[in-house]
Design a protein around this nucleic acid. Sequence first.
DNA 1: CCCCACTCAATGCACCTGCATCAATCTTGA
DNA 2: TCAAGATTGATGCAGGTGCATTGAGTGGGG
Lengths: 164, 164
Amino acid sequence: MKRKPSTEATSAWIRLMRVQSRVLDCVEQDLKKAGFPPLAWYDALLELSRAPSGELRPVELERQMLIPQYSTSRLIDRLVDEGLASRRECKIDKRGQFVEITEAGRELQKRMWGAYSTAIEKYVGSKLSDADAVKLSGLLDRLGCSCGEMKLPPVHVNETTPSR
Amino acid sequence: MKRKPSTEATSAWIRLMRVQSRVLDCVEQDLKKAGFPPLAWYDALLELSRAPSGELRPVELERQMLIPQYSTSRLIDRLVDEGLASRRECKIDKRGQFVEITEAGRELQKRMWGAYSTAIEKYVGSKLSDADAVKLSGLLDRLGCSCGEMKLPPVHVNETTPSR
DNA sequence: CCCCACTCAATGCACCTGCATCAATCTTGA
DNA sequence: TCAAGATTGATGCAGGTGCATTGAGTGGGG
């Protein structure tokens, strides 16, 4: 049976969608106007720069960034094309590889953070007290958890097997 | 000068991005699994169905939905292709046109609301009390206002004109 | 009246995304 | 040991999006 959402919940949903897309747009525009690539590049470079010895398996990056596998693959393509990262083969698992951030990559990540942090302050920080930012984070966190099916291994349950 | 955002603000920003994309994804997936088109179609159909006599100028729709002009144009194309709306010429302004929702469009909008509202309840309503939903809306609203340049008419201020 | 600036809408192009699938390799278990 | 299945990463294709431009139409000042 389907309980309907309250008007309060619906209204929160609508605001979440609209405000996020507006704010994201603003930030992306500021970055673009400053001559920087999209935010996704920043995220990837940040993850790589944080990783021990600056390299990760694509599959790790994928999990960190919560984006699909093919998306990761192509993002890495672009980073490599621009000389911001390089692929290294993985000795122990020849299917896999390592992606390593280059000096140029590290440098771009740092320069982007300048513009990025300014934009965050402009569009978020300056609109909210720290206490309110904490409240907002808390409320959002309540929505975030167990949203997807929490990675139920998609075993074939259609057989008569007692389902795990 | 660039004040840096507090860690609280940054954390709120990150959660806003991540939670929104996760929740939106879940809702879109549920709709898709139920055999429905994307949410943008619903939004457009809803705006049209609300409009007096079920029709709007594309430019109105654009303003309601906060999406760019070309995006509206192509969305209308798709709705028309599927028989959910139709274009009518505008007598008084021959550049323009009216977009009118069809019976099929109204019906689809209603059927989608069934699945849509269920999803909102599942991913938002059930996670938050009404009071918390109101708090969340309030905090988000503070971010939403005057995010863009608030439609400053882009006059050519580069001349020596005293800028309005 | 006519020209110029503006508005409304469509579209060509490049790029990006999702989906399905592939090939290569690893792992498991009979 | 070897076949079946799982995992890693790439890619062809279809469709969506942003950007810039076009083209038609309007309207106001000279």
